[in-house]
Write a protein that binds this DNA or RNA. Structure first.
Lengths: 219, 219
DNA sequence: AATCTTTTAGAGTAAACACTCTAGACATAA
DNA sequence: TTATGTCTAGAGTGTTTACTCTAAAAGATT
């Protein structure tokens, strides 16, 4: 593997584990056993590393959010979208943790991210429209627009929500188990729009992700 | 006004304008025309200032989120809750901008914030329960729990969402006009649960906060 | 006046960190 | 061998920033 890719992989790992802010470029180099000079030979600056990681993340998410053109959407499609997106979110979880800071520090990334957001929003609206056409939900265009935006907000804020409100110490206590609560919450957004025909099957899917009663209790 | 209060007011202003990260303690002192030593006489450290500001914020929000015991909830109550909360959010907007960082840096604040969150969530659930008892919405307990949590997430993430996805440059372009979109979004969460009797009046309220078509367009 | 407490000034410091610079190793081709 | 372009090492630097320390001014009390 090229040094450039090794730098990206190590950066992603360290950023996810400790947060972008706490990981210095010297730290990344030391972790790989290379010199800071070498790192800066391959990347113009720290933002360059982050930009490259964003490109990976973007490609991954856009690859997931596609509506099939040859068939109608099915209940399980919804689940696949959510699992795919949440897995991507997990693998690049450092990103939404400090998005505002990252974007403020790099105007080019900011512009790119805005385009990414708009495209995602369109795709999510297309998915809800597909669910509507398949008779799974009943919702107006206005409903769908609101639903899509709220979905974006809940999905992109979920990890931040967990870290602020559920973790007790600095340990990486965010587990896949907690991730499930996010899927449940997104299902909850859509649930009141379900048609009578599909209520049972979708509720059954949602219930699989119901958080344990304990996850909100004080410990 | 005491020096202590002047420090808090100046800190709040500067934090809101520039973000907590960009405002140094020397900066705050210079802005007030006092010495750094003086600032540290009144506050143990920068986190002490933030903690005191959080106490103000917490008191303000909890004062708003109360369910009247002597009467049933009315449609306008919902609006008042939202306006009150969003105004508080605006006045302390630096806080949710960097909440994860603030909490990670101060375990005492983190514990306090978790308690605050839990209390808020209970209060929001109580409000939805009140709306249900008043016949304004029809929702199960499980619906209400999901609704309350999604409401919390959308409300606390709204400014961050705006800064990431709508601002073009570093100028303070977040206006009260954009704030309205947040109120609209929270209404959208609740809308599918409205009873037939109240749909018209609530939709009318929500429509006042409908964002202009332009606010999502590219510029 | 004298003493004690509270408040303020302001120079200074230690640590952190993104990034630079020079020089040398290594590979490839003429 | 020599020349050329690519990659790497590692010491070092300039800046930023939260916070300290000493001493003095201001205020209160007897």
């Amino acid at each position: 593997m090229s040094t450039k890719d090794r730098i990206l992989d190590a950066s992603l790992q360290l950023f996810n584990e400790q947060g972008e802010r706490k990981v210095t470029t010297n730290h990344i180099a030391a972790h790989l056993g290379i010199s800071p000079g070498n790192l800066y030979y391959h990347f113009k600056n720290k933002q360059g590393i982050i930009f490259a990681l964003f490109e990976r993340y973007e490609a991954r998410v856009l690859n997931i959010l596609q509506v099939p053109t040859d068939r109608a959407l099915q209940p399980l499609d919804k689940l696949n979208y959510l699992q795919g997106v949440f897995n991507g979110l997990w693998d690049y979880r450092f990103m939404h943790r400090d998005m505002e800071h990252l974007l403020l520090a790099d105007a080019e990334l900011h512009a790119r991210y805005r385009d990414f957001f708009r495209l995602c929003l369109q795709r999510v609206e297309a998915i809800f429209t597909g669910l509507e056409k398949a008779g799974i939900i009943a919702a107006s265009e206005e409903d769908i627009a609101g639903l899509a935006l709220n979905t974006w907000i809940v999905v992109t804020s979920w990890f931040s929500f967990l870290r602020c409100n559920l973790l007790n110490d600095e340990a990486d206590a965010i587990s896949p188990e907690l991730l499930q609560g996010g899927i449940y919450q997104v299902f909850a957004l859509e649930r009141p729009y379900l048609t009578a025909e599909y209520q049972d099957v979708m509720n059954e899917l949602q219930r699989r992700y119901m958080p344990r009663p304990a996850w909100l209790a004080s410990r």
